[in-house]
Nucleic acid binder design. Structure first.
Length: 513
RNA sequence: CGCGGGGUGGAGCAGUCGGUAGCUCGUCGGGCUCAUAACCCGAAGGUCGCAAGUUCAAGUCUUGCCUCCGCAACCA
């Protein structure tokens, strides 16, 4: 048996200093849709998400609540996992940086790089606020050159720290980025990174002594390993202890990240991998942000959108659909309740839901719920089937290129086409004319078949909805569906009974102002 | 001279290698009655932020300006 092609995709590991908002859900939903599509296309997929649990901020928050850091993060992280479950995220593993399996790998990597001479002990000098126990950069200070948090005076402080010789790898990483145009996507981010490296890379401080909620530096335990050095290694942790798996899935195909952390993933992380003599990930994909009411989401602005509430109100698939359809991947996109409701009503209820409903209803009304065999075809059928197959083809190409929004639009163009097909064929007229019986059967068969195809095409974005359509069509084994199942028109069985039409998405009524 | 991204019909957006400006929603008119007051067809509506330049041809390339917004080495 030949080995299946493999595909490895990651999301960032989220920081449990607060509950997740819709922006996190956005990122994870994209990754999930890609992962599901790859599975549909026959790949062996590994999809990883997780939580980045260390650091001073967590330690301090836990202290404020009079709990230990691990008690604190356990609770928050349970919330992450619940959210992913409710959003139907199909991750294959969930990595927590506080786990032992991760600590071991981080320490191992630290040792290797140190032994190689690329980590050295030096002195970190920074602007320190004693009250907040926090370092700040020059640019972060407030207008009076004081701590941006508590506005007290800051002082210049030095502490012993380990540094990673990132400066050594500047030329190498620059060359790699220039030789691999698809390494950083979109191009705007790539340009940004190139400029950044050309300014010159500094060595990176990778340890701290001012707090202890972190992974100890091996053989020097008063230090803990700091931030990014710890975090990015998560992408390898689940593979590292299993050579087979490692061989199969590393390097990762896509690290999906927010645009603000592209730098860490496309510069720091690759430099670390170079120091370890490990292959670099194939692609860093920087997605945009969700803009809520014209503003970036943030706690201080009070416009944070809780994805859990949205799921309660509208259902996971509707949220998934909106995020994937409405926002062009790589760019910022607007999120609003009105826009969401608009999409649900127009695309999900009116176009898709109603197509299913009216089709099944006609099968019931005109043929007693039986999908009859299709024999022969006229010009209208032919053009319709042709459009179906073109849709599958274009969808496949776009999905392979990670152009999710465009791929979805193609499916909806076809949904529209199917609605139009009903208008063209007018089954209610055919039903009144005995001599048109076969044509009616053909028409209804084609509609049911197109719904089968649609349900599989949308399964990466809306797994539950695809499943529901399958059920109403009285088909089985939805989860075993493959892209191959929709590459030819006419795989739907015939002479069998479909189930009763149920509303997929009820319209959401809003009072007009 | 810190870096980057936007400004496109009423709203929200797309626009690859320069080649007749597209999509969704909304509005207006028509059609249909299988359906979730839904579906289908048609129409109106744009000096593509401003100015100059390159070109047979600029939303697209160059320069300058106006304006909004991010980043600036621990906020998806």
């Amino acid at each position: 048996m030949s080995e299946k092609k493999s595909f490895y995709i990651t999301t960032p590991i989220y920081y449990p200093s607060a509950k997740l908002h819709i922006g996190h859900a956005y990122c994870t939903t994209i990754a999930d849709a890609i992962a599901r599509f790859k599975r549909l296309a026959g790949y062996d997929v590994f999809f990883l998400t997780g939580s980045d649990e260390h650091g001073q901020k967590i330690q301090r928050t836990a202290e404020k609540q009079n709990v230990t850091p691990i008690e604190y993060v356990d609770k928050i992280v349970a919330g992450f996992q619940e959210l992913w479950q409710r959003l139907n995220i199909s991750n294959d593993d969930f990595i927590r940086t506080s786990e032992e399996r991760h600590q071991k790998v981080v320490q191992e990597f630290f040792r290797r790089i140190r032994d190689k001479g690329d980590i050295y002990k030096g002195e970190y000098t920074g602007l320190y606020c004693t009250h907040c126990e926090s370092y700040w950069t020059e640019l972060q200070l407030d207008e009076n050159k004081c701590c941006p948090d508590c506005h007290r005076a800051i002082e210049k402080v030095s502490e012993e720290a380990y540094f990673f010789k990132m400066s050594k790898y500047g030329d190498k990483i620059l060359k790699y980025i220039e030789e691999n145009p698809k390494f950083i996507v979109p191009t705007s981010r790539r340009n940004e990174m190139i400029k950044f490296i050309k300014q010159g890379l500094e060595d990176l401080c990778v340890s701290r002594t001012s707090f202890d909620w972190g992974i100890p530096v091996p053989e020097d335990e008063k230090h803990v390993i700091y931030v990014w050095f710890d975090a990015v290694i998560n992408y390898i942790t689940p593979l590292f202890n299993d050579p087979e798996r490692f061989k199969k899935f590393w390097p990762a195909d896509i690290h999906l990240v927010g645009k603000e952390i592209v730098r860490f993933h496309s510069i720091i992380w690759p430099c670390m991998l170079m120091a370890l003599d490990l292959p670099l990930p194939k692609q860093i994909y920087g997605h945009g942000w969700l803009i809520v009411e014209g503003d970036k989401m943030s706690k201080s602005k009070g416009n944070v959108v809780d994805p859990m509430h949205l799921i309660d109100e509208f259902g996971a698939d509707a949220i998934r659909y909106f995020l994937l359809r409405e926002i062009t991947l790589g760019q910022d996109g607007g999120f609003s309740r009105d826009a969401l409701i608009n999409r649900i009503n127009a695309d999900l209820a009116n176009d898709l839901g109603n197509l299913l409903h009216r089709s099944l209803n006609m099968i019931k009304k005109f043929q007693g719920g039986i999908v009859l065999k299709s024999v022969g075809e006229n010009e209208i059928d032919k053009s319709f089937k042709n459009d179906a197959m073109n849709t599958v083809f274009e969808y496949k190409n776009l999905m392979e290129n990670v152009q999710l929004s465009d791929a979805i639009k193609k499916v909806w163009t076809f949904i529209s086409r199917a609605n139009k097909y009903i208008d063209e064929t007018m089954p209610w007229k055919l039903a009144k004319d005995e001599s048109q019986k076969q044509i009616l059967s053909n028409t209804l068969y084609n509609l049911a078949e197109s719904l089968r195809i649609i349900s599989i095409l949308i399964s990466p974005l809306m797994p539950k909805t695809g499943q529901k359509i399958f059920e109403q069509l009285n088909l089985e084994n939805f989860e075993k569906s493959r892209l191959e199942d929709v590459l030819t028109f006419g795989k739907l069985p015939s002479d069998y009974k479909v189930n009763k039409a149920e509303q997929l998405f009820p319209r959401i009524e809003v009072e007009k102002q």
